[in-house]
Design a protein around this nucleic acid. Structure first.
Lengths: 198, 198
DNA sequence: GTCTATAGGCTGATAGAC
DNA sequence: GTCTATCAGCCTATAGAC
């Protein structure tokens, strides 16, 4: 009995996801240029030919993953804003979520691919456009309003909010890297980072 | 009149340095794998053949640069220890030096190549050995004694010194990346970072 | 849908002329 | 010391069998 249309569509999505997850793993450790399609295929447990059946090119896969990572970076901030409590409480909550996510899982891989995508020149044009486009909501920009709110209720020090946002995000990105450099490295409590706002 | 032996040696060193500086520029923006020898040659203003006259391979150039970067990372900490004042004053002085160095010059390029070398799997074996060898003095390890000193004179909070060192270094690395992502990004004062020690 | 075989292009590295 | 021409190997992407 042949597969139904719906089953085929499900299989298709499943395979695509399988390849994307494998690609995320390899890209985040080796970078876009050094990653070979054969490595992605091997990680996903299928032939390299099949990868090209589901995706047009290596660049397409990379770009897709970067878009996802960018979305998820902004999402966590949006989630924080919906949280109960004062602005600083929201930031603390978010920091806890992020630090926890860094400890395990693929959350850290999304961070790493974002760092690679935004710091390397050796990425597809589409990715470069993504970051330079005016619509692009950078995590720093998303964070600024929350910081200003905190300043208005005297919870956060009266310092240039952009400077504070950049510093905060630098911390987060720095930790992702530290974790990669030294997998067992101790993770600080959210309070330690929050100090920069006081 | 032919060149003397000494002039030849000078020329040789000069050319090597010229190539190394060009390579640092390209590597730090494109990574080890995505960098082509022809790009290094072009940046240095000479033919690709000549690069191979001075260096055995692309990997050799990359490894050399990483070694330099590793040395310079530790050097700044050593310099700080020789400074006058209390431990926290020394750390503050060092932070000012680093933040200033990030603003311009090739100091930031050394940071970036260190980050690449220590976070990517796509680097020469020698580089991987460098970081995993027991003799390797990581910046975090070099910083710990200074932090402990500060704790002993009640200048620094009684928190796991390794955790503090990791956090400090995470910030520094994170900031290098932020600078690359957004060249005009505001630079915080050293005091803002020092807060994590209080 | 999935695989294997292979074309085509690019790049690291070398050889040899000047 | 410096350059240009060239080789050899690898990797992306495709074609075609099952």
């Amino acid at each position: 009995m042949p597969r139904t249309e719906i089953q085929n569509l499900e299989l298709r999505d499943q395979r695509r996801e399988q390849i994307l997850i494998a690609a995320l793993k390899v890209f985040s450790r080796r970078g876009m240029a050094a990653t070979k399609i054969s490595e992605i295929a091997k990680e996903a447990g299928l032939s390299h030919g099949l990868v090209y059946h589901y995706f047009k090119s290596k660049e397409e896969i990379f770009t897709l993953l970067v878009q996802r990572a960018a979305e998820s970076a902004v999402q966590i901030i949006e989630k924080a804003r919906l949280q109960e409590g004062t602005p600083l409480k929201k930031i603390k909550w978010m920091t806890e979520q992020i630090l926890q996510g860094l400890s395990a899982g693929e959350q850290i891989l999304l961070f790493l691919i974002m760092i690679q995508a935004s710091t390397s020149d050796a990425v597809p044009e589409e990715v470069q456009h993504l970051f330079s486009s005016p619509e692009y909501k950078s995590p720093v920009n998303c964070l600024v309003p929350l910081i200003i709110e905190g300043q208005q209720c005297n919870e956060i020090i009266k310092e240039d909010p952009i400077k504070l946002a950049v510093s905060y995000y630098a911390f987060i990105q720095g930790f992702s890297i530290s974790k990669l450099q030294w997998n067992q490295c101790p993770i600080p409590e959210a309070d330690l980072i929050i100090k920069i706002f006081k």
